[in-house]
């Protein structure tokens, strides 16, 4: 797979990042390098090897259905760049049609 400018635009959109045209050549080079590096792994025969998802073999780690309120409203809001003591405030996000 080869990364082109279109791929950069798409990834930037998915990550909600603004990428200027001036930054693109450097990004293009880095990303293509990363991919060729990863492609090295394709040389390995992984037939019959299950993809690794979990780092431990634990299963069924359940929590019982009991309410425990561990933080207050001011604590919940404390990291927000904008809030009014009750709600988080964000830029208006009505979806455009």
């Amino acid at each position: 797979m080869k990364i082109d400018n279109q791929t950069i635009d798409r990834i930037a959109h998915l990550a909600r990042l603004e990428v200027s045209d001036a930054d693109k050549p450097a990004l293009l080079k880095d990303m293509n390098n990363i991919l060729s590096f990863m492609e090295k792994l394709n040389e390995l025969d992984t037939t019959g090897v299950e993809p690794l998802i979990y780092l431990t073999d634990e299963i069924n780690v359940y929590r019982e259905d009991a309410v425990k309120q561990e933080i207050t409203v001011p604590e919940a809001l404390s990291n927000a760049p904008e809030q009014d003591g009750k709600y988080f405030r964000v830029a208006k996000v009505i979806e455009k049609s």
């Binding site: 009750k86 709600y87 988080f88 405030r89 964000v90 208006k92």
Partner: peptide, 11 residues
């Protein structure tokens, strides 16, 4: 989206 004129409120 309609409780405040410039921002959306999140609960």
């Amino acid at each position: 989206h309609d409780k405040h004129n410039s921002s959306s409120l999140i609960d």
